[in-house]
Simulated scan of single mutants.
Amino acid sequence: MICQHLKESGEPAPQTAYEQGCPQCVAGGFDDWVHLRLCLGCGLVACCDSSPRRHMSAHHAEAGHPVMRSFEPGETWRWCFDDEQLG
């Protein structure tokens, strides 16, 4: 059964373009992110948990936005941090 967070998640416009990479990594002088994720609560683009700094998980911990999706070309899967559910 799909959790309520995944059912209710929207699709905000990304705050940054894919080609620019993880904004927090770039601002820190890093270019070693692995994949990008899009917060479906606010549109923040950040790096995944396979990346050294795990900015999307940090964003979830700070902001509490429960759902993100892959921001990789051709991928549309979503993840709910609160319920640890793929959707």
Rank of each mutant, 00 (worst) to 15 (best):
M1A: 09
C3L: 04
C3E: 07
Q4R: 10
S9Q: 06
S9W: 01
G10D: 09
G10C: 09
A13P: 06
T16H: 10
T16C: 04
A17M: 06
A17R: 14
Y18G: 02
E19S: 08
Q20S: 06
G21T: 06
C22D: 13
C22I: 02
P23F: 00
Q24F: 14
V26E: 00
V26T: 01
A27Y: 03
A27W: 11
G28A: 11
G28H: 09
G28P: 01
G29H: 07
F30E: 00
F30R: 01
D31V: 12
D31Q: 13
D32L: 09
H35E: 13
C39V: 07
L40I: 00
G41P: 02
L44V: 03
V45D: 00
A46Y: 04
C48W: 07
C48G: 11
C48M: 09
S50G: 07
S50M: 13
S50L: 10
S51Y: 02
S51I: 01
P52T: 03
R53F: 09
R53M: 15
H55N: 13
M56Q: 04
M56A: 08
S57H: 14
A58S: 12
H59P: 01
H60Q: 01
H60W: 09
A61R: 08
A61W: 04
A63K: 07
A63I: 03
V67W: 02
M68Q: 11
M68G: 01
R69G: 04
S70F: 07
F71M: 06
E72N: 12
T76S: 10
T76V: 12
R78E: 10
F81R: 03
F81L: 09
E84L: 14
E84Q: 12
Q85V: 11
Q85Y: 10
Q85C: 09
L86T: 12
